[in-house]
């Protein structure tokens, strides 16, 4: 369980986080939802201590983290798996070395065990056989998946994912969501996911925190989210739904178009004079 209390952060006079408190439960998927630029990534970085909050504290399973001694913070960090918004793969290493890196640095596994684990993780994100590729040879979505493989390679206790499925096609996005859900439940870890994708919310969100301009406006489960009367959240959901509907309508149109073309084609074929 991760608890945050009254987190404040400003950058040069610009308030980005304005007193956010909350609890992220173990064995559940905790979502941080919000529009672009509301401070989701900054909050995630404050939680893991990459950005020092101006005020406020974070505790991991009862251990105070934010301003604690370096040893204790590093101890906790070794239990953290994190996917960054821009993947943050080590670009001088191959895919295999990237996923192997936390295993090599943080565990006592033998080389053979590690390679097995790497292959297992790559398989789970659908990238088996990409071992020898360099990050520069991968697409954005593939990088993201390698980033996830690297985050889950050591059996972490806390998993943080910054937009795990942005830039992925809906099918792969769904697979990644399911993977994260599986891992969370199987190993009973505490997972926090940053997202602005309503699909993820409906698929996997056990607990959702909605951020708006640096404040926590709403908190609840995915069943409650549709009945909320908070205007900002409703706007957000509505915009997302609109997008999805628009996409669906477009797709239907395209299918219709294709059918019509096929019919036309068939008619022409039939009417063609023989010979």
């Amino acid at each position: 369980m991760i608890e945050i209390h009254n987190i404040h952060k400003s950058f040069g006079g610009k308030k980005v986080l304005d007193g956010i408190s909350g609890v992220f439960e173990t064995g559940k998927i905790n979502l941080l939802l919000g529009a672009s630029g509301t401070g989701k990534s900054v909050l995630l970085k404050c939680i893991v201590g990459l950005i020092k909050p101006d005020l406020g504290s974070v505790t991991f399973d009862g251990t105070y983290f934010t301003n604690n001694k370096l040893d204790i913070r590093q101890e906790i960090r070794r239990k953290i798996g994190m996917l960054f918004q821009g993947s943050a793969l080590f670009d001088s290493m191959t895919v295999e070395e990237n996923v192997d890196f936390p295993l090599k640095m943080l565990t006592n596994m033998s080389r053979k065990e590690r390679i097995e684990r790497v292959n297992f993780c790559l398989k789970r994100v659908g990238l088996e056989g990409a071992n020898r590729k360099m990050p520069s040879e991968l697409s954005g979505g593939m990088k993201k998946r390698v980033g996830i493989a690297r985050a889950i390679a050591p059996n972490c206790t806390y998993l943080f994912c910054d937009e795990p499925n942005s830039g992925l096609d809906p099918q792969t996005a769904l697979k990644i969501d399911e993977l994260i859900k599986e891992i969370t439940e199987e190993y009973n870890i505490t997972t926090i996911i940053v997202t602005h994708d309503m699909n993820s919310v409906i698929e996997i969100g056990d607990k959702i925190m909605f951020l708006f301009e640096g404040k926590k406006l709403w908190e609840g489960t995915k069943d409650e989210i549709m009945d909320t009367d908070i205007k900002e959240l409703n706007d957000f959901i509505f915009a997302n739904r609109l997008m999805r509907d628009a996409k669906r309508i477009e797709e239907e149109d395209r299918e219709e178009e294709q059918e019509r073309e096929a019919e036309e084609h068939a008619r022409l074929e039939k009417n063609k004079p023989a010979g």
Partner: peptide, 18 residues
């Protein structure tokens, strides 16, 4: 510098590596 701006340094730090 590149490692810093692409968050690779952050990735190391988050693993508890100095």
């Amino acid at each position: 510098g590149t490692m810093q701006i692409t968050e690779q340094v952050d990735a190391l730090e988050v693993m508890g590596i100095n």
